[in-house]
């Protein structure tokens, strides 16, 4: 198995040294194979989201290292880590983090506005992504006017804007029904097989876990067999 990204003995401690210190992740080592769909299972608060943040370079480990194609990234500058996020990683957040005042298209186009792609081109690409997810009738709706499922699809479309190598999805099925979940998983599977997209998904939904190529279970911040 060729690991595109891996974590080696990573720890993440929030509020270190304070009375509210939390060991969110404890000594976790994990390999994510290129082109595979890897799932992280476990109850709420087990550290799944924190592992995703570490692998997605949204935070640095308190201890240990994260490697992207064998290049150690934890110690690199924020500028470089931001560049990697911009060019190679897509995110589907559990809380979605859509900007309610913006339309679907404007939200989806956001990742491309900090590149040299023109705004018009970015919005045309955003329309393509949204149309592919069945949102062609909601392109100019403000996301505050959309249903939970529609908002999730906007979030998914946004995660694919930069044609990422790695897609990180945190509870992607949390606000959509089973049928839509299956559609979403089929879409991601198709992208994985056709484009070699690596998918890392955190979920406690059995449908999602059963669909993945590899499953890791977490408990109290650690991986369990």
């Amino acid at each position: 198995m060729t690991a595109i990204i891996r974590a080696e003995s990573v720890w993440k401690i929030y509020g270190q040294g304070s009375p509210r210190e939390v060991n969110a992740v404890k000594d976790v080592s994990i390999d994510i194979a290129q082109g595979e769909v890897t799932a992280l299972g476990g109850p709420s608060g087990s550290g799944k989201t924190t592992i995703l943040s570490l692998l997605g370079l949204l935070t640095k480990p308190t201890k240990g290292s994260v490697y992207l194609e064998e290049r150690e990234l934890s110690s690199l500058s924020e500028v470089y880590r931001t560049k990697v996020r911009r060019e190679r990683i897509g995110f589907i957040f559990q809380a979605q983090y859509l900007i309610p005042q913006l339309t679907s298209v404007e939200n989806v186009a956001l990742p491309k506005l900090c590149t040299d792609m023109s705004r018009d081109d970015a919005e045309n690409l955003a329309k393509e992504r949204l149309t592919a997810l069945g949102m062609e009738n909601r392109l100019d709706f403000r996301v505050a006017e959309l249903s939970g499922g529609e908002q999730q699809r906007v979030s998914i479309a946004r995660s694919l804007m930069n044609s990422p190598d790695i897609l990180i999805a945190d509870e992607p099925s949390s606000s959509i029904d089973e049928a839509l979940t299956k559609d979403l998983l089929a879409t991601l599977r198709g992208m994985s097989e056709e484009n070699g997209l690596t998918v890392i998904v955190a979920s406690h939904d059995p449908t999602v876990l059963n669909w993945s190529d590899r499953i890791y279970h977490m408990q109290d911040g650690s991986l369990v067999e």
Binding site: G56, L58, E78, V79, T82, K83, R85, R86, E87, F91, F93, Y97, I99, L110, P111, C114, R158, N162
Partner: peptide
């Protein structure tokens, strides 16, 4: 605050 965090997560430099 969340907007800034989101933009950073999506690859916007400081």
């Amino acid at each position: 605050r969340r907007e800034v965090g989101l933009l950073k997560a999506l690859g916007y430099d400081t």
